[in-house]
Design a protein around this nucleic acid. Sequence first.
DNA 1: CTGTTAGCGCTTTCAT
DNA 2: ATGAAAGCGCTAACAG
Lengths: 346, 346
Amino acid sequence: MSEQKSWTLKSIAKELGISNATVSNAFNRPDQLSKKRREEILESCQKLGYSGPNKAAQSLRKGQSNIVALVLPDSVEYMISDPVASDFVKGVSSVLEKSNVNLLLFSGASENINAVSDFVDGFICYGSPRNPNLVEQLRTTAKKVVTADFDIDRKASVGIDNEQAAYDISKLAIKSKNDDIAILGLRLLDSNLTCRVYELPDDEGTPSIAHKRLAGYQKAIKEHGAELRNDRIWNIPKSSHEVALIAAREALTSTPRPNVILCMSDLIALAVLQEICAMGLNVPNDIRVVGFDGIDEASRSTPPLTTVHQNSEEKGNMAAELFINRATNAVVIPYHIEIGHTVNSN
Amino acid sequence: MSEQKSWTLKSIAKELGISNATVSNAFNRPDQLSKKRREEILESCQKLGYSGPNKAAQSLRKGQSNIVALVLPDSVEYMISDPVASDFVKGVSSVLEKSNVNLLLFSGASENINAVSDFVDGFICYGSPRNPNLVEQLRTTAKKVVTADFDIDRKASVGIDNEQAAYDISKLAIKSKNDDIAILGLRLLDSNLTCRVYELPDDEGTPSIAHKRLAGYQKAIKEHGAELRNDRIWNIPKSSHEVALIAAREALTSTPRPNVILCMSDLIALAVLQEICAMGLNVPNDIRVVGFDGIDEASRSTPPLTTVHQNSEEKGNMAAELFINRATNAVVIPYHIEIGHTVNSN
DNA sequence: CTGTTAGCGCTTTCAT
DNA sequence: ATGAAAGCGCTAACAG
């Protein structure tokens, strides 16, 4: 059973006494030879233990591999346990599997897409990669690119209307012009620091997702006639419970203590909730909190979080479909506000 | 900035007026030319927008790609949200990233490893793939193979001593020769059915992980002088809450009702716990339950589950290291019994 | 329907 | 230190 001879298209053709083009055609272009002939050849190959043209050579020749790189925001190790990212991967892979396309996980912390670029048919990027050089490389690559939750020039993309969603949720959280509002932002700065954002860098190019959300918050704040002090915005560099806790603590121990906290992710909001609870304060009476994402855990927290729910798996499906259809348009998918008990208790 | 000309080693060599061997050496074999010369060349390449040898061609030529396929037990879509599988992936990727090796996720439900075999340096397999043909293909491939939580002939492997662990945990659960024991097995049969296992197929070849655990259970049962009726073993085809619930219900509604339930995964045990609770019964007073795996959720359940804890991330690390070191040995890693309140209430 | 052949882009002897 | 040339295994014109 364990056939050791390793055949090539050429050697198998010689063995069968036919030309290699015929063997190639038998495997790749059924219309180029009679059905009967084809089946004979395929059967002989199987019998001899030749499992078809070498894919690496085929890919070199055809420039197509049926592999797509999924570029994660950060290292695989880090992202694989993030519920939002996992859902996205799930969505992508479920669509790709149907088309027999395989998925290469690629870290957003990598130095260079070149390591895999020649192997894949293109890139699906979930969120802005931690290494900003990758964005530049993705912008200039000749391969297909689809982005989700961020944009690159004229590449296909999928995501929700972040500004509108942020506006909607903060509209709910803010109740009076006297509210003291704090914003816990996710990657507002291009920095690893967990710190206050006194002034924002001028937004060159496409605004990031964080900036869009911020714009939505600010619009709602203005409409309420409330004010956002310039020491009330925090930058959280990555989606991690530990880091979020640090920022939460900093915000909650600032004086005067804010009574509305707008969080750019549920993970952050959950950390805030935990910290508020530890301080013996009450949500929503003392402090109102809203999140962003709508992860399962947010609905199971006490109190359940009021947040923007977006369907990450569906987003993954969409991204994969855009990729397969070689689309170049920007798709905006719906979101909904999930009413918990962190704004109104009833 | 967006250099459109796409260079090849040949064309860039001509442009620079040097031989292509020299360019190749500049990139791959620093010892073959003077440091100064090399740096000049590299700099010129960068300036012209040539980012180095095409990896696909390089891989065809060298037979090495720095990509490894991670073969999951089932579809990516399905496995990515499984906490145990995710931890394993995390462990694998954290080690591989350090060696600049990329990870291709491969579904255990695929038809054929050929789809990716020629692209990768080998396979790391987590658990027995759902499609048994893959096992045969992995057995005969010339590529490197490392398995985790199951074995293939003489391939490197990593895992715990499943029989001993099953023995240890069931030794704890069983208390008298009169105990009425049920076993909820995971993939005891090569079938998609959730059903009782009246008789086990003769174990040809290497016993599966499920069979090893079963052997451990049986040994403990025998030592206690208890009996395992032949209608007391269930087969659960896949690790899913829904399917586990069905089996749990079937076991718990059988007459007489078993008072000890040995589960081959925590997911199953949690479903059992949920069902017992729904029936208004008490754990451990009415029924004792033990699991297998030690997922986080098991320690947070009420009551917390008594189970075998194995470190999946560490297992992933180990698998990746075995792969990189081209090992061929079987590594047995430690486990520990996690004492919850599903055997004794105190 | 079949065979011949020129590459895809690269690495690696071997000779210079 | 460098250049010429033979492939790695395959596909797609093209000619028959």
